[in-house]
Design a protein around this nucleic acid. Structure first.
Lengths: 185, 185
DNA sequence: TCCGACATGTAACTGGTTACATGATTTG
DNA sequence: CAAATCATGTAACCAGTTACATGTCGGA
């Protein structure tokens, strides 16, 4: 629990940043597996500083605008590495509104049921295509000690997940279509 | 939003139940894609009744104990079917603490990194095995208009997901092992 | 008679989202 | 000079978890 702390510590462990910069990271590099709005980040930074896990120094951009550049402390590094090595017990499965709809779809006419599935399939196929685009930006597998290697592994995971999702949806459609084919004839 | 309502309406659309029964359903048949504690269910039932989407009648178990058997109203059925047919736009990806750890694992020695991956793999392999056990309980594919058909599809989805997870983790381990093999020699 | 399952609720808290609020800097 | 982006915060609300609280019923 309190995972947001560790996401922030992990980022600050790489380099010093402002709350705004962190917010950008959550929208880009971490987007595939974690996210947080600035309204959650700023209070958490305050709490982390109070706990002595991070510090900040104020810098001036232009002539007036102040920004707080946060960096991790030794205590913060210790805390982070401890978390990083602790076991990730798999949590209760994430909620899935589509599967909920599908589960109850026996209350719909067959055509509507298939519509539900094809629509979902289309969305995941689109997503998968985007991910393949991201993958093609790597013209080589990054070295294992590079931070880009982690990016690469996470991307492979996303592709694997979307691929399996598409496969499953296609199976569902096939099963819906081949079963009870005589309802309207 | 307010998805819990629809989960409850969907269950009550199949048959009348008490809050306790609903709670059991969330622990069993819906567990793969939705869950809710009784502390969330009882207030929601109250709200649904106030909105006229469900009603209840009090029954006596034994000599004293009262239980409220809830059933869906016509208004409730209308509301439910409307939701059931509405589009499931895929939401922002669910948070994944393991992937967060993996993302930052370049800060760990290679051995610890691999440990993280193999540990996770073992958990998912175990989960997959359990799901295969569930699948073997179906000796035939249920007919498409049967409620059990939905169970079957959802189960196939879970198996597909866990399979792809295991595949990906194995790929990660392989990549970690084959890259930079000369660090300790 | 005791224990596990049946049965229903509330309160306090945590994590997260949306909306409110403000202002400076850079770029076209 | 206008618009996009940089930059930081708070308040109100919603979903969900944990803990508190109570009591009955059926079977071993």
């Amino acid at each position: 629990m309190g995972t947001l702390r560790y996401a922030i510590l992990g980022l600050l462990n790489r380099k010093a940043m402002t709350g705004y910069d962190l917010s950008k990271e959550f929208q880009t590099s971490l987007a595939e597996f974690w996210h947080a709005k600035h309204s959650q980040i700023y209070p958490e930074l305050k709490a982390l500083a109070e706990d002595g896990l991070i510090t900040f120094q104020t810098e001036i951009t232009g002539t007036v605008l102040e920004k707080k550049v946060y960096s991790i402390t030794e205590a913060g590094k210790t805390e982070f590495l401890q978390w990083e090595q602790s076991k990730s017990k798999i949590k209760r499965l994430p909620k899935d509104e589509f599967k909920l709809r599908l589960f109850f779809s026996d209350s719909l006419p067959k055509q509507a049921q298939i519509q539900l599935l094809t629509d979902q399939l289309q969305q995941h196929e689109q997503w998968l295509q985007r991910l393949h685009g991201d993958l093609s930006k790597f013209d080589t597998i990054p070295p294992a000690d590079d931070a880009a290697f982690s990016d690469y592994l996470v991307l492979l995971g996303a592709i694997s997940r979307e691929k399996s999702m598409c496969d499953w949806l296609q199976t569902c459609i096939r099963l819906c279509e081949t079963k009870t084919p005589f309802t309207t004839s």
